[in-house]
Computed example of a mutant assay.
Amino acid sequence: MEFLSLANERRSVKKYDKDYKMTKEEIEKIIETAALSPSAWNLQQWHFLIVTEEDKKEQLKKDAWGQPKVSDASASIVVLGDLNAYQRADEVADDWIEKGYMPEEGKAGLVDTVHQFYQDDQIKRDEAIRGASLAAMTLMHAAKNMGYETCPMIGFDPEAIRKDFKVPDHLIPVMMITLGKGEAETRERGYRRGAKDIITYESFE
């Protein structure tokens, strides 16, 4: 699908065909596209908890305060931000060296710079949320391009999800996304602020 059409047609869909089952291959294709998202130093701060089994979706539904779309969708995805992504700096450096982006003697300096930058816990958290959010938007566009609907969600108890799904401490729930064959939204799109309302050129002074 041409991108402007895709962006215009993507909507947050709340009703899904509960009998429709996406294949594992389809879901993974969408995730692979999401993984093309940008991130600082290519650290890729995202991880995806994909819930497709009926009993697990019912548990996730409880953690999302009973919202029906969580269990009706083919998959409900918890988008997680990785607080420890900076620890992959060695992998990034090795890849850059292999591709000729950086000389081998630059590896130690790059790894040290990355580790120093992420010493601050607030930066770790901000970057985890930022990276996961970029991947989440790509995921939604990729799903729409394949004919599937999505809905991003913040209506859930992150600590309940952490407990019920044994989420490791270094992964933080950023948002949920329902994914499946949905009833495409036909209502007129809600109000959007125009460019003149959301742009300031050069400075606020």
Rank of each mutant, 00 (worst) to 15 (best):
K144V: 06
P152M: 12
K144A: 11
A132M: 02
P168Y: 14
L110D: 03
V114W: 01
K181Y: 01
V114A: 02
E105N: 15
R88H: 10
R88I: 00
F156D: 00
P168L: 12
L83F: 03
E185Q: 14
E98S: 15
D90I: 01
W96V: 04
T150G: 09
R192A: 11
Y101M: 09
M102T: 06
V174M: 04
G155V: 06
G100A: 08
F117R: 10
L139M: 09
Y86Q: 00
Y118N: 03
C151L: 09
T113N: 12
A89L: 04
R125Q: 08
E98H: 13
L110Y: 08
L139C: 02
R130T: 14
N145H: 14
D164F: 00
P152G: 08
D126R: 15
K166N: 15
Y191P: 09
D112Y: 12
R162A: 12
F117C: 00
K99I: 03
E185T: 13
P158Y: 02
R189S: 15
K163G: 03
K107H: 10
N84P: 09
A89G: 07
D95Q: 12
A93D: 08
L139P: 00
K181M: 13
K124A: 04
I123A: 12
L83K: 03
P103I: 09
I97L: 10
R193N: 08
I161R: 05
G147P: 08
L134D: 01
M146S: 11
I161Q: 04
M140V: 03
D94T: 03
V174G: 01
I97C: 08
T138K: 08
A128C: 07
A85I: 01
G109A: 15
M146L: 15
G190I: 11
T178N: 08
A160R: 13
K166Y: 13
L171G: 01
R193M: 12
E98N: 14
D95A: 11
D126T: 13
E159P: 04
D157A: 06
I123Y: 09
Q116P: 00
Y148L: 07
R162I: 15
I172S: 00
Y86D: 02
F165T: 06
R125S: 02
R125N: 03
V92L: 06
V167C: 07
M153Q: 06
R125G: 00
A128E: 06
M140H: 03
G109M: 13
Y86I: 00
E183S: 11
A132I: 02
G106D: 15
E127D: 12
E188D: 10
R88D: 05
E149H: 10
D126N: 15
R187F: 04
E91L: 14
D82Q: 05
